[in-house]
Design a protein around this nucleic acid. Structure first.
Length: 444
RNA sequence: GGCGCCUUCGUCAAGUGGUUAAGACACCGCCCUCUCACGGCGGGUUCAAGGGUUCGAAUCCCUUAGGCGUCACCA
């Protein structure tokens, strides 16, 4: 049986759209699941669009996503070069062969000489797609497309056929936008007498706007590139895990997959042929699952810069990891540790805990001396002393805790419970904050 | 506009003629609880529409509608 070989063939734009990443992922996963090869090929035949360092950017992004090419510009391989601009001679040779055999012709214009493919005027071309079955398009729909531009570079439609054949690609996995141009490719394969690869045209990744309309995922939908997502604090493995499931179903109810698992169980059968909407909610959930599964130490490590300046990183990681969807959520959650937000009397009212600013002042006043007496500032001691007070006062635990939390953080939501944030703040700062709140509450 | 592709809960989706139409996220409610989160329990919402075929249709056929894509010396 022929070796399975797939490729990812981006143009070097310096931007890795999530849809492109998914295409690369599926091509990679399919190859690996079949013991095949995954090839990275750079389609840079449009010199006007050249972006410096874009190849390195693509390679770095794939590496971060743990998608590892077997062959590519910097990965070796026996079918190179893997950058199309370095293959100009090859395309020229094949284009001329087509002219010689009557499948193409020269055309002169003010730009210079180009070569066009000669399309049949009648009949139709049919090809088989794994997801869509047979697709037929009338040849009359096809134009005599440019094969070789006057600058000597091939067009995409020509270069990809030549390269896919020469590089022995067995399965072409790409976006649906190429469906309508596939007949042109088929005609080329036929003209050369080459065997056809298997086609798999993937449905696009969509985004949903505020007004409910759905369109191809773009900037207006928020972060749309792998790097955007990394930037706001999603783990690379979360992104690949989520994206893998966006248009592919493992035929089980499992949702969390490691790359190794995906490489083993991925199959074309689970691919969906309809577009899928990128759902940040689900991404957040999945990201949280990864965080919760981490040790505190590991979380502290990945949270890295977001924890800068925090002394008890491991402790706070323990509190944070169950409450964070993405790393960039951290600052808003812990800023109060560095600096107390502005006093807000509204926060001292809470219906559920039956608390009012007046009641809060009373509680704060009573608790201050208790806290001052605690010499060993530990969570256990804090819990014990506050519990003692609660019991003797006849108040509900929630009623006592509420004003303490607000006084210490000015936030309704904090990482960890009241005694934990007291511990993090330290005795001195805790008391400063409670006294300050008390003053504000009593109008001093 | 021509041509092509697509259409099961708000979202991801299972489903391949007979099911109470899975599961997950989100949402809502309850429990737990010092808030939030975590955890537990429960709930609502789905086969785009209309025709057929069939004893029987989300599953097969046709039509309509909508969405997306494509019609470059871009990829």
């Amino acid at each position: 049986m022929k070796k399975i070989r797939t490729r990812f063939a981006p143009s070097p734009t310096g931007y890795m759209h999530i849809g492109n990443l998914r295409t690369a992922l599926y091509a990679y996963l399919f190859a690996k699941s079949q013991g095949g090869d995954f090839i990275l090929r750079i389609e840079d035949t449009d010199r006007a669009r050249y972006v410096a360092d874009a190849v390195e950017f693509i390679e770095k992004t794939l590496a971060a996503a743990k998608i590892i090419p077997d062959e590519g510009p910097h990965h070796g391989g026996n079918f190179g070069p893997y950058v199309q601009s370095e293959r100009a001679e090859i395309y020229k040779k094949y284009a001329e062969e087509l002219v010689a055999n009557g499948f193409a012709y020269y055309e002169e214009s003010e730009n210079g000489v180009a070569i066009r493919q000669k399309m049949p005027k009648i009949g139709e071309t049919t090809f088989y797609d794994v997801l869509h079955g047979n697709i037929t398009i009338a040849n009359a729909e096809l134009e005599d497309q440019i094969l070789l531009k006057s600058d000597g570079m091939p067009t995409y439609n020509f270069a990809n056929v030549i390269d896919d054949h020469l590089m022995e690609i067995s399965h072409i996995i790409r976006g649906t936008e190429f469906i309508t141009s596939t007949p042109k490719h088929i005609l080329l394969y036929q003209a050369f007498g080459w065997e056809l690869p298997t086609f798999v045209h993937l449905a696009p990744v969509m985004g949903k706007s505020a007004d409910g309309t759905v369109s191809k995922l773009s900037k207006r939908h928020g972060a749309t590139s792998f790097n955007d997502l990394i930037e706001i604090g999603y783990l690379p493995e979360v992104i690949t895990n989520y994206v893998a499931l966006l248009g592919w179903n493992p035929k089980s109810n499992q949702e969390i997959f490691s790359m190794q698992e995906l490489m083993k169980i991925f199959s074309l059968e689970g691919l969906s042929k309809s577009p899928a909407v990128f759902d940040y909610n689900k991404l957040d959930w999945m990201s949280g699952e990864y965080f919760k599964a981490m040790t505190d130490e590991k979380f502290a490590e990945v949270a890295g810069k977001y924890l800068a300046g925090i002394s008890d990183k491991i402790f706070i990681s323990n509190l944070l990891k169950t409450r964070v969807a993405k790393l960039s959520d951290i600052p808003a959650m812990i800023n109060f540790l560095r600096e107390l937000p502005e006093f807000d009397i509204e926060l001292f009212t809470n219906k559920r805990n039956k608390i009012t600013p007046e009641k809060s002042a009373e509680i704060l006043k009573s608790v201050i001396p208790i806290l001052e007496k605690i010499s060993d500032w530990t969570i256990d001691n804090l819990n014990a002393e506050i519990a003692k007070f609660t019991e003797s006062s006849g108040l509900k635990v929630g009623t006592v805790m509420w004003p303490l939390r607000i006084a210490a953080s000015m936030q309704k939501v904090t990482p960890g419970g009241v005694t934990e944030i007291f511990y993090l703040l330290g005795k001195e700062e805790t008391l400063v904050r409670i006294k300050s709140a008390l003053n504000n509450l009593t109008g001093n």
